[in-house]
């Protein structure tokens, strides 16, 4: 794997991913965190089409993630768009693209459509490189870097931090089969036939097995779903012949979506903000009030506690 290039590290957060997709000029998509894969969650998700799931995790060291599908069919299927992960920091964007570029029902917008057409015949390695070399993808991705006036040189990080590897695995139904797309493996893994209706049930045991494995190894992970924009779905349903109660329910859900998107916007703006002048001024206030020494002593004690 090559070095980080000039791709910043971004958070695997639903609000970040949702804005990222919007800035790729793809409309009508949002990303949500999925906390559990129980029957009730799946049932709810089925009503809003789910285009794909992203299992994202972070580990330390170079453990091998593959090997869980010894009998998997790794033969390259031309109908699947598969890219190898070329740069660690770019993995959020790659995870999203591996779903977007495999869903014919998503309107990709001019930029991604052009990218897909241009790279369609590339080998998986070259597709990954093309993603990391794309100015559009990189600039959108990097718009999430915090605007602190310093850039951490990865070589300055402690060895612990340097070895953190971010890794994603996407699950997508493509042409009647469920696929596992892992940017660090050699090709797409066909997990067997599925339909648009039953693919979530088919993927459930596969993801649950991973969740159990990583939870026991204390590896941090999260599961994100790329779904159709909920407000669009609800508004469409409002146009049909529905009961008063259902109408009220839909209006309430739309209201909740609006609140959520406002929160995303706010969090993203805080994420990108350069807080140094703000922090500096708070410290000055503490110093002016003669409270800074006490805070430093307090912080030293906290640090000592943590070392124990």
């Amino acid at each position: 794997m090559s070095d980080a290039g000039d791709w910043c590290l971004i958070e695997s957060d639903p609000g970040v991913f949702t804005e990222l997709i919007k800035k790729f000029n793809v409309s009508g998509i949002q990303v949500e965190e999925v906390w559990s894969l129980d029957a009730q969650t799946l049932e709810e998700l089925k009503h809003v089409p789910v285009y794909g799931l992203i299992f994202l995790f972070k580990w330390q060291g170079n453990k091998d993630s593959s090997g869980s599908h010894p009998d998997a069919d790794l033969s390259i299927d031309d109908s699947v768009y598969f890219a190898k992960q070329a740069i660690n920091n770019a993995c959020a964007t790659q995870a999203i693209l591996s779903i977007l570029l495999n869903c014919p029902s998503i309107d990709l917008g001019p930029d991604l459509q052009q990218f897909k057409d241009f790279t369609r015949e590339f080998e998986p390695d070259d597709k990954g490189l093309a993603m990391t070399n794309s100015d559009l993808l990189r600039s959108v991705h990097n718009s999430f870097s915090r605007s602190d006036p310093f850039i951490m040189d990865p070589s300055e990080l402690s060895s612990n931090e340097k070895e953190d590897i971010f890794h994603f695995i996407s699950y997508v139904p493509i042409h009647g089969a469920l696929y596992e797309l892992d940017g660090l493996s050699n090709g797409p893994v066909n997990l067997g036939p599925c339909t648009e209706d039953d693919w979530l049930e088919k993927v459930r045991p596969v993801i649950q097995e991973r969740m159990a494995r990583y939870a026991s190894a204390e590896i941090r992970f999260n599961l994100l779903a790329l779904i159709k924009n909920r407000e669009d779905v609800y508004k469409k349903r409002l146009e049909s012949d529905i009961s008063f109660e259902e109408r009220e329910d839909l209006l309430h859900k739309i209201e909740l979506e609006n609140i959520k998107f406002k929160r995303y916007e706010r969090e993203n703006s805080l994420r990108k903000h350069n807080f140094i002048p703000f922090i500096y001024n708070i410290i000055r206030i503490l110093a002016e009030r003669g409270e800074l020494d006490a805070r430093i002593e307090h912080a030293k004690k906290e640090m000592a506690k943590r070392k124990k």
């Binding site: 903000h273 002048p277 703000f278 922090i279 001024n281 206030i285 430093i296 307090h298 912080a299």
Partner: peptide, 30 residues
Amino acid sequence: VNLIDVLTPSEISPLLSNPEVASGTLFPHL
């Protein structure tokens, strides 16, 4: 030390209730 332990929300939020501090010094940096 870590700044997280120096500027804990519980310790610094009383400072922020002072309108002079808030509007004069901190608002411009939000």
